[in-house]
């Protein structure tokens, strides 16, 4: 599935939570969590199943003009593939 039609969504077992102690967001799932970087958080927040990969990248590109949209798209897709590889994401296959 390509970026123009894939609509990634966090798996049912995954929760995105803000940790007030560290000021960072965590992806929580059974027995483990991922402390996300700022850009990883921006991407994860848009994994609602309603945004395509391309829409996510285009949306973020509006706020990060210091880097090319192509590079953002690549980073977004790489990150989403990593999450999918851990079983944390659906809708990307």
């Amino acid at each position: 599935m390509t970026g123009d039609i894939a609509r990634p969504q966090l798996s049912l077992k995954v929760r995105l939570r803000f940790d007030r102690r560290t000021g960072r967001y965590l992806l929580l799932y059974p027995e483990t969590g991922l402390e996300l970087s700022r850009t990883a958080t921006e991407i994860a927040r848009l994994c609602t199943g309603e945004w395509t990969v391309d829409e996510i990248a285009q949306h973020l590109a509006q706020f990060h003009t210091e880097i090319s949209p192509v590079e953002i798209s690549r980073d977004v897709l790489d990150f989403l593939k990593t999450l999918a590889g851990r079983g944390l994401l659906q809708g990307l296959q």
């Binding site: 483990t32 991922l34 402390e35 996300l36 970087s37 850009t39 921006e42 990060h64 210091e66 980073d75």
Partner: peptide, 14 residues
Amino acid sequence: MNWEAPSFVEVKMD
């Protein structure tokens, strides 16, 4: 804020 490659650190839910 500048773009940085998205990353994460795995933490055990102890």
